[in-house]
Design a protein around this nucleic acid. Structure first.
Lengths: 188, 188
DNA sequence: GTCTATACCAGGATAGAC
DNA sequence: GTCTATCCTGGTATAGAC
């Protein structure tokens, strides 16, 4: 289905924009992206008329990719799944990057409402997944039953985003250490 | 000691810049700030020659203020102190704001090295304070002794920063719920 | 210490040639 | 689909009057 000749500039553009936003938020420039892709800035407008369109496309792709990864994690015990989730969530830090959805909260006021809604839905999905996983672990007798699954999910997802934030400041600290400790504490 | 006549524009400027950065990072403009203070943009340069100087002053003040607050928290049991710390840390969210040091990590690449160092020191201070508080709680038999205090501190501070981030996306969720759950889990 | 005027630069976006 | 040329806007910063 892919055209055999030439590159897919549109896809590369989304990729570069995603990386840029994971490191510097929405302050990236078309000039910068164009340079990296070996083209001129106005060429980008052919693929995405406005900067907001590019941002929206990048966010949609990123969320779809992440949720696909999470869907893979349905094997093993609750603890194993939570640990694997930590690895998936903190993966961007290993390239010095941040969670795209978390990064965009810094430019929240300037973010277009439809994109905000998608990001809010992303975080809600994460809370729901963690809560459900914890609750099943409790039913199975694997996790402490005196735990409010919803509140733990909130603290856990917060710890993951926060760990990525701290990793930028101190790249030497193991990014997963904090969140993994929380999983351990939830075990009975 | 304060001059009886006139305002202290310098102090007001730091205050406004701090609020601006807690909501939109370093993308605030002199024009914007000047408008809020009822003066013209070039007047600001008289108090802070470059934008970086203003940012640096705001960060220094913010950290000093926060660490003064934390120094107040030396009363009560370890659990009580950790709970009070959660309240202090999440206070900005009640005005729709973020931790200034956390906010600046979004513009990390553009942040001047001296400011970066101060922010890194801030986070290190927080980790040290939490770790020490936890360790004392363990000695007193108040907190679980099977806990790696350092790793817990990492997860806890991360959860606090992350809770502020999530609060921006979902202002309806109680910002302290997640972190408070972590304290509860650390209790024996 | 605050103002007006201005220099300077960078980014987003469009028009129109190729 | 990519280019050059161009417009417009908005930001930092400076000079110099008051």
């Amino acid at each position: 289905m892919a055209r055999p000749t030439g590159r897919n500039l549109r896809a590369e553009l989304i990729q570069e924009a995603t990386i840029a936003m994971q490191t510097e938020g929405t302050s990236f420039s078309f000039n910068q992206l164009a340079k990296r892709l070996g083209v001129r800035a106005p060429s980008l407008h052919h693929h995405f008329r406005r900067k907001d369109d590019l941002i929206a496309a990048a966010v949609t792709d990123y969320i779809a990719g992440f949720e696909t990864t999470v869907a893979t994690l349905s094997t093993g015990s609750a603890i194993e799944r939570l640990n694997a989730y930590v690895t998936a969530f903190t993966a961007p830090a290993r390239d010095g990057r941040f969670c795209l959805c978390g990064a965009l909260t810094a430019d929240w006021e300037d973010t277009a409402p439809p994109v905000r809604k998608r990001i809010a839905a992303f975080f809600d999905d994460q809370l729901v997944w963690v809560q459900a996983t914890v609750e099943r672990g409790q039913v199975d007798g694997e996790l402490r039953s005196d735990l409010a699954a919803r509140d733990f999910a909130h603290g856990f997802v917060a710890a993951l985003e926060g760990a990525l934030l701290l990793a930028r400041v101190s790249p030497d600290v193991e990014v997963a250490a904090g969140p993994l400790t929380l999983v351990q504490m939830a075990a009975r």
